[in-house]
Structure formats: structure tokens, C-alpha cells
Design a protein around this nucleic acid. Structure first.
Length: 815
RNA sequence: GCGAAAGUGGCGGAAUUGGUAGACGCGCAAGAUUCAGGUUCUUGUGAUCGCAAGGUCGUGGGGGUUCGAGUCCCCCCUUUCGCACCA
């Protein structure tokens, strides 16, 4: 105690010194240790945009603190970091400032690495991986080739989403909202007919719907489930009068007899053929208009069901009835087969369409409503017994779908089918700064994979990166020239690069062994560390990254490359820090909070603690410049508590109470850390500090309870304010680091209350509070209650009719 | 329209299973220290009536269950976020 120095708390000095020391000591190096349970904790990797902003801190600090907590609990924790370094912003910056994308990216990485280090997180920098490094993207290409070998990637010409501003195609997931905007730049995307590479993510639709082995937020599960959009029903084959097959998907095959017309999407390939000469001009005009509408915006909230008759007819396979074929923009080419059977009596959209175009409405399900189409004023969608349905008439509602499907299958007119909203993942990008697709196009042999020993296919540095809508690699004088690996003839390289979501789908594998050259990872590291145990990041990746990364590991699993099928077991999402004005932070609004400034003013420990304290982590909220002062005061108070001599040295009472507070705090902090409830971790520790300060001035500074309390406080602060805790730990004479101490085990005996405040209610209202011992029995409690002057007054002389006694809490007298 | 989450002081937010609503912090007020202070410390701080003791009201609104509801049930309102003619 006497060796304690009296020093001012100087966070900057302490933080720089300890960061250096930790690096020298390799304190945070994650090393395989079969004797300890591993825990792979991971935060979504940053994009090297230029500066670390407060949002990075918000994402990273709490997960770092929790990883530290887990490490103190005895887990062998790995907490790596890297950079998602390919991508459009580098090219955009390059165009704007005339600097090479590579240079821009790597300069930013250097700057951000420096900024990240001021955070004092327990990252193992030896495991850093950068997706734009050739040794990284070599393996991204290798994975592409494995997918190719197993038939999980293919090339297809189709109408794809293209962002005219980013000058590249996009995956379906990157097109946002009803008005179809680019996920990156919010430009409305257009459709283009292009030959592009796809990954067969739809092969994994059902696997992706299974979250049973995961501890993921319900919200993300719902997001992904809705995105995948599985619906069960039947595929039914209609034929045009000319005999062309028109396949439809329906979830209600039991309503087939009520199909009174068909509707095709305006872009449907058969439209041209079935349209009659009289209708051709009308149909062409409508189709052109519909296409233009998708290009502009379909905003009208009151969407009237527009459409035109093609002049063609189809035969309903269940009753050979001839029904008219219409086109309408409410049928989408991108979903199902782009054609529907319209059952106006039992589908509201079809109903509205039928009413506005004078088409027949024929009920075929008895839902208790009117049984004549003319009398209906809306479609009835409930299940019910089949009517007007040939031999199936009378089939009860519960069996209607299955029996109709059986009936269709017997007659080979249709079959049970499952339809998904999910599309295959389009990964081609017509941009320079990405991972080259390792394929060679041979005029004789077709697309051929680059032989594995030739990997990586290096991105050339000497490039004109202006965007044209085609890959800049195409304009390189020599890069694309290659020989066919199959026939040795002249061939051309694929000049598109991969979607960067491909690079980030597997980065957690590269962290295992970033310097390994024999494969994407060192198998021993993989066997020990994978899968990721705790994954944290923003909800904005709920569909994109988090769906792709699951697909990636599922594909590896199916290809026999790994023996697990989910990459990340537990997932938690943090919210967003808003500006003081409760708006999203942006330079143009001028409401950006710069972490570097805060670190300079308050120190990293204080910023860390405030970030954990100021809001519910999963929720986020507006930044408060005064709020951080309270946390700064707390840290200073803690510093003084542990460094300044007590003024009163007499031994006082209250050790038992102090120990109770200490161990109750340990219980609370442990539980809240476990549950990602960081704000209450801090508030509990503040209470403990306050209790220790009070105990100190009450003369308990020399007591063993006080010693115990300060020791526990330091250990529990260590994950939050690692530098300050380390400094105070050292000042107490410890040789080893506070960060390798065992997490305090709460003594539940010590935490137990001996006294409690008996709440005395009369008719459910609190009328008195009386201190009592915890083992107070009911009769004693009643006696205490009846002895209360206030209780007597509120009973107004009546005898309580009923007494409810909750031991250790309250007594309620009902009179 | 469908789905999800959320509504608690002036503010951010606490409240294991239904059992003292408002922990902790900000802000505010008064006082102390200070040449000074956007420092530090102490005290107070849901609203309302009252000199006080004490009372009444109070967790978006309405109803219900219960001895007792922020917490459970029903209806409604608001906000945020997803999806959006999904056949």
C-alpha cells in the first residue's frame, strides 16, 4: 500500500506505453492450445475507406471487451482483424483524385491500422489478412475453381441488374427496394442482357433456411427467411392453342378449376408468338410501356391492374377449357415462371384484374360466401371444400391441395413443386479493383479454368481504370491474351472481376494462417479454431454478407473441403451511433464525431467505456458530447480510489455490506457481459466504485473487504479500460498482466442479503417500508405490518381479510 | 398491405420469475472549495397538492386477469426498420 505512487491519471501516456509493451510481450497472440477450450471471436472486417470513424469503435470495442472477458474466463480466445480491400470506392477515389486504386487502398489501410491500434483492442495482428493481397485472392480464385469443378458456378446469358452509375452488374441482393436502387449508390438500376457468372446459391435454399444449429438474432433469421421466400405448391403445365407449353407455379392447385384466364409477364418469351395480329399493336405498346416503367419507377400506390389481351388462348389441363391469355405488369418475369393461371375468385389481384377487364369470376372453393362470381366483392382466400371442380368436387379443404397434386401427377399435367424467391448469386463485376475471375475463354473449347498452379491470376497495375460499363481489364493491351489450357490455342481471359462479397465470404478462414502457402489455410489451425464462435457486426449485412458467407461454407462442406456447414455459430448485431442531431452521421451534415479527437481529449479507455455505456448496444442512438464527461469522471474517481491514501484510517463497520456489494456486482457484471448488455456492465461497475469510495471515507480502507473489492474492480474494469486497469494493476505491485488474470468468481454466500426492506402494502398500495431480517416468517411480518402506524391508518380499523406474504419481499394486507 | 422491433422523468436508459418504477449517467438547482472556472466535491431532482406530516396521480391510449401489472391477455394509436403485385 505504501508503495503506491500519487500520480495524476494521464491516459495518453499510459495508453501509448502499455500498447507498446503488450505488442512486445505478444500478450494477445492467439496460439493453438489443445488443453484449453477455444473461442473464435470475430468482428466484421472494415473496408479501408480512409478513416476509422466512431461507428468502427462502436462495432469493435464492445466485442473486444467481451473477447477479453471470455479470455479471463479461461477460454483460448482468437480475435483477429483484417481489411476487405477490393471494391468500388477505391476506383471512384482513383478517378476523382487520379491516384491508383491500389495505392489509395494501401495508404488507407496503413492509416486505419494506426488508428485501430489506438483502440487498445486485443487483436492478434500476426493474423491480419487483406483481401487485395495476391496471396489472399489467389485462394479466392482457388475457391472459384472448386465451385466450378463441382458444378456450383456457371455462366449464363440473361437480363441482369446493371447500375449505370457504378457501371457494373449487381447481384439481386444488391438491388434495394421496390424502386430497384443500387445498394451502393442508390441509382436506379436497369436491366441488361449479359453473359455473366453465377454461383448456385439456390441449390442451398433449404439449408440456408435451417437456423437450428445457430444462435442468431430472430431478426436476421426472418430477414433471410423472407429473402429466400420459399413457397410450396405445384407446377402446372398449360398449353397454348398452338401447343406451346406454358408452365405456371401456384400455391393453390386446388383452385385450378377456377382459372378463367392466364396472365404472362410482358417480357415473357412466348408473348411474341401467341399474340394475334389484331392485338399485336396494343400488346407491343403495352409491353414497351411496362419495360419503361421498371426502368423509371413504379410508384403509384393505387396500382390499378393494367394489362391487355394478347388474342391468344390457352387450354386449362384440368378441364380442357379454352381461356384467354393476357399480359400484365403485375406478373413478374423474375418470379416463378413469369406466367400465372388467374383464379379471380380466390386471389385478390386476379379478382381486381378480372373486374376491371370484364373477365369471368368463378368460385371453386366453398368458403361460406356467395357461390356466384357476380355476387362476390372480393376474392376469398380461405381454404374450403372444392366445388365446381370435376371429379374432385367435394374434397375437403385440408386435403384439397394434396389431392389435386396427386390428381395432376397421375395425369402428368403437373407436379408438386417448391418455388423460391432467391436467385442465383451473380458475381461478375465489370470493374478493375476486384479479384480476377480465373477463367479463360477458348473459341474452340469454351470456358476453361486457369490451372491451379498458375494461380493467382494477377491484377495488372498498369491500367486505365475509367469506367465504361465493361471491365477495364478488357482494354489492357496484353493482359487478356492467354492460351487455352485445354488445346493450347489462342484464348482470352475473363476480364470481369468477382463481387467483393465473394472475398469477404471467407476471410475468417484466411485469418487462421494468413502466411500459409500450401492452401487457403493451415489444416491444424482450421481444425482447432473453426467455426467462428461469436460474430458481431451491423444488421445492414443481414442478407448480403451473412447469406453469402453461409452459402460459402455450405458449399465447402458439400464439396468435402470442411466438415462443418455453418461458419458462424453465434451472431449479435450492434446498432448505429447517430449524430447529436439524431440524424445519420455524415460529412455534409457536419455531425460527425471523430474518435481520434476524443482519444486525444479523454483517452481511449474513456471512449471505450462511454461507447459501452451510452446506449443499448443492439440499438445505438444519438451521440452526447456531455455524456462522456460522466464516464471520464468515473475513471478519474476510480484512479483516485486506488492511488490516493485514505484520509481516515480508523476501522469502521460495514465490511459485510461491502462484500455483499462486491459480489453482487461480480454476479451482475458476469451475467451482463455474457448477454452483451454492456451498458449495465458499466453502470454496475460505477455503483461498485461509488460503494468503495464511500467505504474508504467510512474508514474501511485497511479492511480485507476493501482490498478484495479494489482487486475485483480492477479485474472487471480490465476488459473495458484495459490500459488504466493494467497501470493500476502494476502500481499495486503485480508483475504479470491484469489481462491474464482469472475472471472473478462471485461468492454467492457473500452476495446474499441478510436484511431486506419489507414492503408493506394495504390493498396493493405501498404504505410502509420496514427493515427486517431475510428469514422473517409470515406471522412476524404480519406483526410488523400491523405495528405500523401508517398501515393502521389505512386499514381504518378493519381486520385484513386476506394476507399475502412474499418472503424476502413484501406483505400485502387486503381489507 | 404483410412482417419484425419498440413506446418508461427534461435526456440516454435500469427494473432475473408479475412483487419498492425511475438503478447508473447526463442535464438542472442549491451549497462548499477556488483569484477565477465549462474544475472538483456535497446535497437535491417523476408530476402534482401541502408550511409540514402526508396524500393523489404516474411506464403511448382504452379495457381485462390478479391481493398486486412497465412486465400477462384483448383492442387501438404512434415510431423505426425490413419486404412489398411473390402467384
Amino acid at each position: 500500500m505504501s508503495t503506491r505512487e500519487r500520480r495524476k491519471y494521464d491516459p495518453q501516456e499510459i495508453e501509448t506505453r502499455w500498447q507498446q509493451r503488450w505488442t512486445e510481450d505478444g500478450l494477445y497472440d492467439a496460439v493453438i492450445d489443445e488443453g484449453r477450450e477455444k473461442l473464435y471471436c470475430l468482428t466484421m472486417l472494415p473496408y479501408p475507406s480512409g478513416d476509422i470513424h466512431i461507428g468502427h469503435w462502436y462495432a469493435m470495442v464492445p466485442s473486444d471487451a467481451r473477447a477479453r472477458f471470455k479470455r479471463m474466463q479461461g477460454y483460448n480466445v482468437m480475435f483477429p482483424i483484417g481489411f476487405d480491400a477490393f471494391g468500388l470506392p477505391a476506383e471512384n477515389a482513383a478517378i476523382k483524385r487520379n491516384v491508383h486504386p491500389k495505392e489509395w487502398t494501401y495508404q488507407n489501410i496503413e492509416n486505419m491500422r494506426r488508428q485501430l491500434k489506438t483502440m487498445g483492442a486485443m487483436w492478434d495482428w500476426h493474423r491480419e489478412a487483406i483481401s487485395a493481397d495476391p496471396e489472399y485472392y489467389r485462394w479466392t480464385q482457388w475457391f472459384f475453381l472448386q465451385l466450378w469443378k463441382h458444378g456450383l458456378t456457371y455462366r449464363k446469358n440473361s437480363a441482369v441488374d446493371f447500375c449505370p452509375n457504378c457501371n457494373t452488374t449487381l447481384a439481386r441482393e444488391q438491388v434495394i427496394g421496390n424502386d430497384r436502387k443500387c445498394e451502393r449508390c442508390t441509382t436506379t438500376v436497369i436491366k441488361k442482357e449479359l453473359e455473366q457468372w453465377f454461383f448456385r446459391i439456390t441449390d442451398f435454399a433449404d439449408d440456408l433456411l435451417d437456423f437450428s444449429s445457430l444462435d442468431w438474432p430472430q431478426r436476421v433469421q426472418t430477414l433471410q427467411t423472407n429473402w429466400i421466400g420459399r413457397s410450396e405448391g405445384a407446377r402446372v403445365l398449360f398449353k397454348s392453342e398452338g401447343g406451346d407449353p406454358i408452365e405456371v407455379f401456384t400455391t393453390r392447385p386446388d383452385t385450378l378449376w377456377g382459372a378463367t384466364f392466364m396472365v404472362l409477364a410482358p417480357e415473357h418469351p412466348l408473348v411474341e408468338k401467341i399474340t394475334s395480329d389484331e392485338q399485336r399493336a396494343t400488346v407491343t405498346t403495352y409491353a414497351e410501356q411496362a419495360v419503361r416503367q421498371t426502368e423509371i419507377q413504379r410508384l403509384s400506390l393505387e396500382r390499378d391492374k393494367s394489362g391487355v389481351f394478347t388474342g391468344g388462348y390457352a387450354i386449362n389441363p384440368v378441364n380442357q377449357e379454352k381461356i384467354p391469355i393476357w399480359i400484365a405488369d403485375y406478373v413478374l418475369m423474375g418470379y416463378g415462371t413469369g406466367a400465372i393461371m388467374a383464379v379471380p375468385a380466390h386471389d385478390q389481384r386476379d379478382f381486381e384484374f378480372a373486374r376491371s377487364h370484364g373477365l369471368e369470376v368463378r368460385p371453386v372453393v366453398d368458403t361460406g360466401g356467395p357461390l356466384s362470381g357476380d355476387e362476390m366483392d372480393a376474392a376469398t382466400t380461405e381454404r374450403g371444400a372444392m366445388i365446381n371442380s370435376g371429379s374432385l368436387t367435394g374434397t375437403p379443404g385440408e386435403e384439397a391441395v394434396t389431392r389435386t397434386i396427386a390428381w395432376l401427377e397421375e395425369r402428368e399435367a403437373g407436379e408438386s413443386a417448391i418455388n423460391y424467391r432467391l436467385r442465383d448469386w451473380l458475381i461478375s463485376r465489370q470493374r478493375y479493383w476486384g479479384c480476377p475471375i480465373p477463367m479463360i475463354h477458348c473459341p474452340m473449347c469454351g470456358p476453361q479454368p486457369v490451372p491451379e498452379p498458375q494461380l493467382p491470376v494477377l491484377l495488372p497495375d498498369d491500367i486505365e481504370w475509367r469506367p465504361t460499363g465493361e471491365s477495364p481489364l478488357k482494354y489492357h493491351p496484353t493482359w487478356r491474351l492467354a492460351t487455352c489450357p485445354e488445346c493450347g490455342g489462342d484464348a482470352e481471359r475473363e476480364t470481369d472481376t468477382m463481387d467483393t462479397f465473394m472475398c469477404s465470404s471467407w476471410y475468417h478462414y484466411r485469418y487462421l494462417s494468413p502466411d500459409y502457402h500450401e492452401g487457403p489455410w493451415d489444416p491444424r489451425e482450421l481444425a482447432y479454431w473453426m467455426p467462428v464462435d461469436v460474430y458481431t457486426g451491423g444488421i445492414e449485412h443481414g442478407i448480403l454478407h451473412l447469406l453469402y458467407t453461409r452459402f460459402f461454407t455450405m458449399a465447402l462442406h458439400r464439396m468435402g473441403i470442411v466438415d462443418f456447414s455453418e461458419p458462424k455459430i453465434q451472431l449479435r448485431n450492434q446498432g448505429t451511433i447517430l449524430g447529436e442531431d439524431s440524424e445519420k452521421m455524415s460529412k455534409s451534415r457536419g455531425n460527425v464525431v471523430a474518435p481520434d479527437d476524443l482519444v486525444g481529449r479523454y483517452g481511449a479507455d474513456c471512449v471505450r467505456a462511454y461507447i459501452m455505456f451510452f446506449a443499448r448496444w443492439e440499438q445505438g442512438g444519438p451521440w452526447s458530447p456531455t455524456g462522456i464527461e460522466g464516464v471520464a469522471r468515473w475513471l478519474h474517481r476510480t484512479w483516485s480510489l486506488l492511488t490516493e491514501e485514505a484520509t481516515s484510517a480508523t476501522t469502521g463497520d460495514g465490511e459485510r455490506e461491502l462484500r455483499r456489494k462486491i459480489h453482487q456486482s461480480a454476479q451482475g457484471v458476469t451475467r451482463d457481459f455474457e448477454d452483451f448488455q454492456f451498458n449495465t456492465v458499466i453502470s454496475t461497475l460505477m455503483e461498485l466504485t461509488n460503494a468503495l469510495v464511500a467505504a474508504k471515507s467510512a474508514g474501511l480502507a485497511e479492511s480485507s473487504a476493501f482490498e478484495e473489492g479494489t482487486e475485483l474492480l480492477l479485474k472487471m474494469i480490465a476488459p473495458i479500460a484495459p490500459h488504466m486497469a493494467e497501470e493500476l494493476w502494476a502500481l499495486r505491485g503485480h508483475e504479470d498482466s491484469v489481462h491474464i488474470q482469472s475472471w472473478p468468481e462471485a461468492d454467492s454466500e457473500a452476495a446474499k442479503e441478510e436484511l431486506f426492506t419489507l414492503v408493506v402494502q394495504v390493498n396493493g398500495k405501498v404504505r410502509d417500508k420496514i427493515d427486517a431480517t431475510i428469514d422473517l416468517g409470515e406471522s412476524e411480518a404480519l406483526a410488523l405490518a400491523l405495528g405500523s402506524e401508517s398501515v393502521r391508518r389505512h386499514l381504518e380499523g378493519r381486520e385484513p381479510k386476506k394476507v399475502i406474504y412474499v418472503p424476502g419481499r413484501l406483505i400485502n394486507l387486503v381489507g
